[in-house]
Design a protein around this nucleic acid. Structure first.
Lengths: 206, 206
DNA sequence: CACGATTTTTCCGACTTGGAAACTTTGCCG
DNA sequence: CGGCAAAGTTTCCAAGTCGGAAAAATCGTG
């Protein structure tokens, strides 16, 4: 998968990953304030200036790994059977997506969500990442439904709504007041969206 | 409404409004790059340092008026009849909200949306504003449905989904490929959400 | 190996950010 | 009214951030 790249390209990728990994570790282990260009660069054995060549901000570096994994899941959405209803494809891919984004480090992600809720810059970057993923999802949806991404509202709506759902679920889950697993929460919420949201007195989902 | 404030408070408010108005005008008339702390402060007849006392960034200053008006509409949601189903309240208030946010300056808002889609910092701030409004909406919903804002997912979902819808509609409308009015687009989309999103081949909404 | 292309590094000037203290304005009370 | 405390504004400035430019190192290819 990465083997069709030359040495130069592989090194660039390695540097990028080393930097974002270092940024992530610094955040989870020593807090967001420990994530400076100097510290991250030192951990990845490059100059601070090189760090800035790769990332415009520490927030971008920290979330780069998540963006990467999210992009892979968008690809998964693209390879679903062409005749599957969009909504089924989403329901199938999203729970996996959220798990993949987590990787093996559940509690670290809970930390991330908490940091994002306290730190404006991190929140902004988190929302930016979601926005970019949503844009890609809208494109896939447009492609499969034959909609025109420039002229139709539907694909954007169909991407934005599950996106908002994922965000709400993540924040809820990271709050720590539920025993439900993340994929289950996603499944439940997606199912509710498909059937129309609860009216009147909203039934607590969990 | 503002008359129960002392002179000091009124002056503070006036300064804040003068600054955010100046920031808004500078953006619409001379572009985002013209909005510097110096220029905004000069236009509002205060020192640059005072500008920074009020706003952490130019983006915050530009969008402060919109946040203000959005907050007022959240209040409108709060004063809807207590026995009205949440979803009806939202359907009733959101089209007004989007119009009020516009104020009289439709084309300026289209400019804003375009700027936000090109400028990462503005996009971040726009999303932050949406996020804060959504949080307030979630609180109102929790209050009226008897849900616990800390322990239930439903109010957050019910706030996030219309929020995402508003964002999608705004971007679509500002794209300029539709003749539909903004409130009509909102109404159509909200109705679709209530009934469950379109499946399979997504019907173009407009 | 050698040359061009790309990446990394060093150096550095321009810009941003926010703390500290002086100064001005406002609120309040004798 | 006069004066004092609280709050807001301004000036000054030190520390930090950002990104351009050119030198140095590394890589791809003939």
């Amino acid at each position: 998968m990465t083997s069709d790249l030359g040495l130069r390209e592989r090194k660039k990728l390695a540097t990028r990953i080393a930097l974002s990994d270092a940024a992530w570790s610094l955040m989870t282990e020593h807090g967001i304030d420990a994530v400076t260009a100097e510290a991250v660069a030192a951990a990845a054995d490059v100059s601070p200036r090189t760090f800035r060549n790769y990332f415009a901000s520490r927030e971008e570096a920290i979330l780069d790994g998540i963006l990467l994994r999210a992009n892979r899941l968008v690809e998964a959405l693209r390879t679903r059977p062409a005749d599957e209803p969009v909504w089924d494809s989403l329901a199938h891919v999203l729970p996996d997506m959220i798990m993949s984004v987590l990787g093996e480090r559940e509690c670290d992600v809970a930390t991330l969500v908490r940091v994002c809720s306290e730190n404006p810059a991190m929140l902004a970057q988190q929302l930016a990442v979601f926005g970019r993923v949503e844009r890609l999802i809208a494109e896939v949806i447009a492609e499969r439904t034959g909609a025109d991404i420039e002229r139709d509202l539907a694909p954007h709506l169909l991407a934005a709504v599950p996106g908002a759902t994922m965000r709400a679920v993540l924040n809820f889950w990271a709050g720590g007041v539920t025993d439900a697993t993340l994929p289950d929460l996603v499944r439940t919420s997606i199912a509710q969206l498909r059937d129309g949201l609860p009216l009147g007195r909203a039934a607590p989902v969990a």
